[in-house]
Write a protein that binds this DNA or RNA. Structure first.
Lengths: 245, 245
DNA sequence: CCTGAAAACTGCACTGAGTGCCATGAGGGG
DNA sequence: CCCCTCATGGCACTCAGTGCAGTTTTCAGG
């Protein structure tokens, strides 16, 4: 296995960490995840048991050794975004970062996929990792949609859709044992999301109308017995308020 | 606490299960989830430690005692769907089932919300529960979209969007301590998803609605550039042809 | 009411993850 | 050479979860 580890903090990377990862992924395929104890791993790696938990807060973390770095990269990528970037496009690009991490190490990624598919505990752990990615995307979108009506709602929905599309393509690629063009699959899947929520194709002319079809839709909630004038008033308000001048 | 438990299998409901839930939710607020051991719970409930794990496969499960039943309800609801049901509408209605479960017991739901917000382990567990709901929705949609190009992809994305919208509204309601109209919030949020993915405008809110005073709510979806008369016409239509008799 | 069997309950011992504490040993100035 | 720091190792402990065996409860049939 070609070291999928990350340097903690800065500078040198500890060989112990890599040794633990290597030992773990040597044992998991032959004994299974649950029947491999931490003692087995540290014995094979030749380190003390206590050291394992210094490098990985839990046994599950050794299966996802590089997500912490990837999450930091994504956060930085979104933070470096400018005000003129189209938000949905930006989060799609951010999602591609995650794909890149998987594609760096196809064999490792496929092996991990087998594990997470079969072990419920690892599946749950992976969900919490994915959730953090989704929250990073949603946090960025919440900022960009802040002035919009239902901006927070839209941010959460778009983030979930992007993650779902990304994962759909990623899993398809993993099921094919890492053969095939992962990037193209993800692009295709994300294209669907952008066509539903974002500004469709690459924006050649960002005119006064900056947003896609989703933005042209307004949702009204009213009591059934409300007077008509009240509904009309609300509808008119959404036309003048949130858009741009 | 008013028993949020479910009858396992068929027939009578065991009081031990309810006693365990009650004991757990008596201890969690005062000691916190992690500092409450299973031994504490069974001691307060007056049962043997071994019995706890006969009713709940893990300590986390006692926090979500009714999701298993709700998941079964949702699966049944989707399975009972006809070929003439509009799929996106159907999954939105299915999501409302979950909301109904929360709304049955506002105090309990709010208390659980506090727990899951603060305890990482419970948050992870909740994610796995939500994931199962999402897979149920996606599985139904995959069947309905089977003949479509990219049907599987679309199914996954729509399911994720529905879950995200539902959770957005649900959490907003939970943050307000269970005051406010949860049904209306969820309808509003799901309206966004349907406007992005579904077919046509939503008929007035269906589903089990039995909440507070502002109950009779209608949701309108319209293009922002639609003429006002069109909106008024649609609003009037919902008044003259009410959804549920 | 008695009886026998099945199901439910309890106690006990065990595995394994994760943590706190302290000793040790290696490097790096002074 | 000594001292300081820090990474590591070892040890003991808590607690979740499981398998097993023994005991109680439930209940059907007589």
């Amino acid at each position: 296995m070609s070291s999928p580890s990350a340097a903690p903090g800065r500078g040198a990377k500890p060989p112990i960490r890599d040794a633990l990862i290597a030992a773990a992924f040597e044992l998991f395929p032959e004994r299974g995840y649950e029947r491999t104890t931490v003692d087995d791993i540290v014995a094979l790696a030749g380190v003390g048991r206590r050291s394992f938990f210094r490098y990985f807060p839990s046994k599950e973390d050794v299966v996802f050794p590089d997500h912490e770095r990837c999450l930091a990269d994504m956060t930085a990528f979104l933070a470096a975004s400018g005000a003129d970037d189209e938000p949905v496009r930006r989060v799609c690009d951010a999602a591609r970062l995650v794909l890149g991490m998987y594609a760096e190490n196809p064999a490792f990624s496929v092996q991990r996929y087998r594990l997470t598919k079969e072990v419920p505990g690892l599946r749950a752990y992976e969900l919490s990792v994915v959730w953090r990615y989704e929250r990073a995307l949603a946090g960025y979108l919440r900022g960009r949609f802040a002035r919009r009506a239902d901006g927070i709602l839209r941010a959460d929905v778009v983030a979930a859709a992007v993650v779902a599309a990304h994962n759909n393509a990623l899993r398809s690629w993993l099921r094919s044992h890492g053969r095939g063009d992962a990037g193209a699959e993800v692009d295709h899947a994300l294209g669907h999301v952008r066509s539903a929520f974002g500004a469709g194709p690459p924006p050649p002319a960002p005119g006064p109308r900056s947003d896609g079809p989703g933005d042209d839709v307004v949702v009204l909630v009213a009591r059934r017995d409300a007077p008509v004038w009240r509904v009309v008033q609300e509808f008119e308000a959404t036309r003048t308020a949130p858009g741009q001048g």
